[in-house]
Computed example of a mutant assay.
Amino acid sequence: MITYVKEGNIFALNGIFNFAHGCNCAGAMGKGIALQFKIKFPQMYIEYKKLCKENSFSLGNIFIYKYENGVIFNLATQTTWRTKADISAIEIALEKMLSYSHLNNINRISLPKIGAGLGGLNWNDVKRTIEKVSKNYPQIHLFIVENYKS
């Protein structure tokens, strides 16, 4: 199930402690929602950067980071911060995230418009991809914040 939130903050949605966002594979989290993750979860950023440096995080991968209240899914959606997001990488990473969530009883995840902000993709194309993949996991409720507002 998907709920589209017109505007808000993925970290401020009531009762949701699992988050996902699109990442590059170069170890950079310097703008947008990625920067918020870097600031909010500095240890996650250190581990993510190490994976990238070791070339262990590539398109379509997910880096799962468990913190005291939940899980963060870092989805490898673009090669570098200079390149556009890759729609097929988004689809593969979402499938991995939802499969993991299903196996681990994670049923509520909030995320931004992955790939459609700094990733440069058309939101309607990404939205169709998310809807296609999530149909196979009706027990997992995705909350997608379409526009950031603090």
Results as ranks from 00 to 15, higher is better:
residue 26 A to L: 02
residue 47 E to I: 03
residue 144 I to P: 00
residue 134 S to V: 12
residue 75 L to I: 10
residue 101 S to K: 07
residue 98 L to G: 06
residue 126 V to F: 04
residue 72 I to L: 08
residue 25 C to L: 03
residue 94 L to V: 01
residue 23 C to S: 12
residue 60 G to I: 02
residue 79 T to E: 14
residue 33 I to E: 07
residue 120 G to C: 02
residue 69 N to C: 13
residue 107 N to T: 10
residue 97 M to F: 00
residue 57 F to S: 06
residue 72 I to G: 02
residue 73 F to L: 02
residue 102 H to F: 13
residue 71 V to D: 07
residue 58 S to N: 15
residue 53 K to W: 08
residue 79 T to I: 09
residue 148 Y to M: 07
residue 100 Y to T: 09
residue 36 Q to H: 09
residue 143 F to P: 01
residue 126 V to K: 07
residue 31 K to C: 08
residue 141 H to T: 05
residue 57 F to V: 02
residue 21 H to G: 03
residue 87 I to M: 11
residue 120 G to K: 03
residue 121 L to W: 09
residue 81 W to A: 13
residue 77 T to D: 13
residue 126 V to R: 08
residue 135 K to V: 04
residue 81 W to V: 15
residue 17 F to M: 04
residue 11 F to T: 02
residue 46 I to V: 15
residue 146 E to M: 13
residue 10 I to L: 11
residue 98 L to W: 04
residue 132 K to D: 14
residue 140 I to H: 00
residue 142 L to Y: 09
residue 70 G to H: 04
residue 43 Q to A: 12
residue 60 G to L: 05
residue 142 L to K: 04
residue 11 F to N: 07
residue 40 K to H: 09
residue 91 E to L: 04
residue 28 A to M: 10
residue 150 S to F: 06
residue 30 G to K: 11
residue 22 G to C: 04
residue 73 F to D: 00
residue 37 F to C: 03
residue 126 V to P: 04
residue 6 K to G: 06
residue 7 E to H: 04
residue 138 P to E: 00
residue 148 Y to E: 05
residue 75 L to N: 10
residue 111 L to H: 01
residue 67 Y to K: 06
residue 86 D to S: 14
residue 69 N to G: 08
residue 19 F to R: 01
residue 112 P to D: 11
residue 89 A to P: 00
residue 83 T to S: 11
residue 132 K to A: 11
residue 32 G to P: 00
residue 11 F to R: 02
residue 38 K to F: 06
residue 144 I to Y: 06
residue 57 F to W: 03
residue 73 F to T: 01
residue 146 E to P: 00
residue 125 D to L: 05
residue 122 N to K: 15
residue 100 Y to R: 01
residue 80 T to C: 04
residue 95 E to L: 14
residue 87 I to Y: 03
residue 105 N to T: 14
residue 21 H to S: 06
residue 3 T to N: 13
residue 14 N to K: 15
residue 129 T to M: 06
residue 92 I to K: 14
residue 126 V to N: 10
residue 137 Y to N: 01
residue 45 Y to I: 06
residue 2 I to L: 03
residue 120 G to Q: 04
residue 30 G to R: 10
residue 86 D to G: 11
residue 144 I to M: 05
residue 97 M to H: 01
residue 132 K to R: 10
residue 51 L to K: 07
residue 107 N to M: 12
residue 8 G to H: 00
residue 61 N to R: 05
residue 120 G to H: 06
residue 30 G to W: 10
residue 134 S to H: 05
residue 87 I to R: 06
residue 2 I to W: 07
residue 118 L to Q: 13
residue 126 V to E: 05
residue 25 C to F: 05
residue 20 A to H: 05
residue 44 M to G: 07
residue 108 R to P: 00
residue 61 N to C: 12
residue 29 M to Y: 05
residue 101 S to W: 11
residue 54 E to W: 03
residue 76 A to K: 03
residue 2 I to F: 09
residue 28 A to K: 15
residue 54 E to G: 08
residue 65 Y to C: 02
residue 69 N to M: 13
residue 20 A to I: 03
residue 59 L to D: 08
residue 57 F to Y: 11
residue 27 G to Q: 05
